[in-house]
């Protein structure tokens, strides 16, 4: 579904990615782990076209999408949950959803995401700025689902959330996985990410330092300490 071949990217003069290669197969959940500043967010931004790729290529669904514009990638079927959620404060909860619904019609509708996250249905008339962190996260996930994506890019879906909310978000992500979603997941909380993922990549200083089965990494405390410092 997705293949990165030695991509390099950065901001201005600063290079962040030094040749990242990875693959995500159809129906697979892949975790992208690593310490702060390892290049996880930049990798996702490069895929969706927000950070220009300098070299290397991004292949999605059999097509080279390197340097394509973000909105065309969204319409081609990449759902993106940005770092810090990116809920629009000037739009109500419902407007945050109607903004996206219908751009790529499919199984996910506003009614269905309200079923998945009943809290959002209760708060549909609230402004995006009035939501709690957990509700914002639910809204951002719901919004990405409404694109009926072939591939979901999730950038820290549990960032800054209380443990109880983290568990709820992961239960919903497990529901989404059970429906056969293909996901590339960036996470700080290694334990939750590995509980959901099939495979994992560990980034360090803009390169892939470790890759393998999520279960292998989850069961290997030594490897976690070496690559992730946990």
């Amino acid at each position: 579904m997705l293949r990165l071949e030695g991509i390099t990217a950065g901001y201005g003069e600063t290079q962040v990615l030094h040749g990242v290669s990875l693959e995500v197969a159809v129906g697979e959940v892949v975790a992208l782990l690593g310490r702060n500043g390892a290049g996880k967010t930049t990798t996702l931004r490069s895929i969706i076209g927000l950070t220009p790729v300098w070299n290397g290529s991004v292949v999605f669904d059999g097509q080279d999408i390197t340097r394509r514009k973000p909105h065309t990638l969204a319409l081609a079927g990449i759902g993106y949950l940005p770092e810090h959620r990116g809920v629009f404060p000037s739009l109500s909860v419902h407007e945050n959803l109607t903004l996206v619904e219908g751009r790529r019609p499919g199984a996910w509708t506003i009614a269905r995401v309200y079923e998945l996250f009943p809290r959002l249905a209760e708060r549909r008339q609230n402004g995006g700025a009035q939501l709690s962190g957990g509700e914002q996260q639910m809204l951002a996930i719901a919004r990405a689902l409404l694109l009926n994506p072939k591939l979901l890019l999730l950038d820290e879906p549990t960032e800054g959330l209380a443990p109880l909310i983290v568990r709820e978000i992961y239960a919903r992500l497990a529901d989404i996985k059970a429906e056969g979603a293909t996901v590339l997941l960036v996470e700080q909380s290694v334990r939750f990410a590995l509980s959901l993922a099939d495979r994992a990549y560990v980034l360090g200083r803009g390169q892939v330092e470790w890759q393998g089965d999520a279960a292998a990494l989850a069961g290997d405390a030594e490897a976690q300490k070496t690559w992730l410092g946990v």
């Binding site: 927000l50 909105h71 990116g86 629009f88 109607t98 694109l147």
Partner: peptide, 24 residues
């Protein structure tokens, strides 16, 4: 209107709007 919502979303956060399929 939808155009109005796109304008407000774009003013809030143009990058995220684009990543959700809005042709900003």
């Amino acid at each position: 209107t939808r155009l109005g919502a796109e304008v407000r979303a774009g003013v809030d956060d143009a990058e995220t709007a684009a990543a959700l399929g809005v042709n900003v």
